[in-house]
Amino acid sequence: MMKQFWILTSVITLSLFSSDRLGKRPVYKIAVEVTQGTVEANLLRDFLKEQIQTSGRGQVSLPMNGFDSNIWEFNKEGMASPKTAEVLQKLNDIDKLALITTEDGQAVISFVDVLHQKLEYRNSLPDSLSKTLVFDFLGFLDKKNIYLALSETGTGSNSQLKINSLKPTYIAGEPIRFEIESSEDNFVYVVLVPENQKGEPVLLFPNQFQNDNFIRKGDKVTIPDKRISFKASSTPSKDRIRAFASREEWKEFQLRSKKEDSFYKILPPAVTGTKATARSMVVPQTITASIEQSPVMEWDYQIISR
């Protein structure tokens, strides 16, 4: 049975956008700090910083002044303890905090969302596999950067896409379908970007039943088609749908879904496929370039209960 993706929309603000920030990659400003000042931890910190900087995966900030290595505590849900939250509230110049620890022969990387005061990632491997641990973390960071690029690609005018049949409101359980038209020959990607970053972006088009996403000038395509269920739900949120028009196919991304899913997820090469070596998990610096260089049409949804 097909997995259904649900969304309730009450007010839809329709805007047409295109990227005006070409060449500027939306990435996080990251502080990388050691919580235990061992030689191994310092080496791991320096290696991680180098990988983030040289690959353009983030902006690495300067070392934090007066860094306290003893106050980083999080509960089972990843929420910061009161003492840790108090410190995080003072970190106004960074987005994320990477904490490096080596103890009892284990290397540990923790990744903290400063704004939401929450632990987003934590993994450990033996010291001998510390570089593999770094590349596992970079795969996670790639997913975060893709979400950021899909969410924050620059806006402007001159969209090459036109939308038809998208209603301003939907009732819970009502199928949502719309028609999209391109003014030029384009590869078209339509993405549901959830407000909650824990939810990965869902690629509404192309999908498992509509694999050909090259739309010629003047052609109209219904998204999704009648073989796929995409319905309104009563869950409140501020999710958005973004449609990208690209002259080139997004070949650097992997599209993946479970057998029971109708829609794909957009994933970087670093987190797809079978087991990979650290060397093979290095991804190109242009991982989000095709997103940022594609004119985008956006729908913001104010979601309320029924």
Rank of each mutant, 00 (worst) to 15 (best):
T9C: 09
F253T: 01
I215W: 05
L16W: 10
Y264C: 06
F137N: 02
A276Y: 01
T38G: 13
S305I: 09
S151D: 10
T84F: 04
D261L: 09
G139I: 03
Y121S: 06
I7L: 14
D95Q: 09
I94M: 06
E248Y: 13
R45L: 09
A98W: 02
G199V: 03
M281G: 05
Y301R: 06
N75C: 13
Q53V: 15
S19A: 14
L255D: 00
K238Y: 15
V27P: 04
L91I: 00
L138I: 10
T288I: 12
E298K: 09
Q254H: 13
T54K: 13
A245H: 10
I30Q: 01
K238T: 15
E184K: 15
E252G: 04
T155P: 01
G23V: 03
F253S: 04
E152Y: 12
F111S: 02
F244S: 05
D46I: 12
E152I: 01
G139M: 01
H116V: 01
N75Y: 04
L148C: 08
E120R: 12
R57P: 00
S257Q: 10
I109N: 03
I12S: 11
G139V: 07
V271G: 04
V188Q: 02
I241F: 08
Q51N: 13
S305A: 12
I52F: 13
T169G: 01
S182I: 00
L150D: 04
A107Y: 00
S294L: 11
Q59H: 11
V202S: 01
F74Y: 15
I303H: 11
D95R: 03
V191G: 01
F137T: 01
K217M: 12
G56H: 04
L48M: 09
T153M: 08
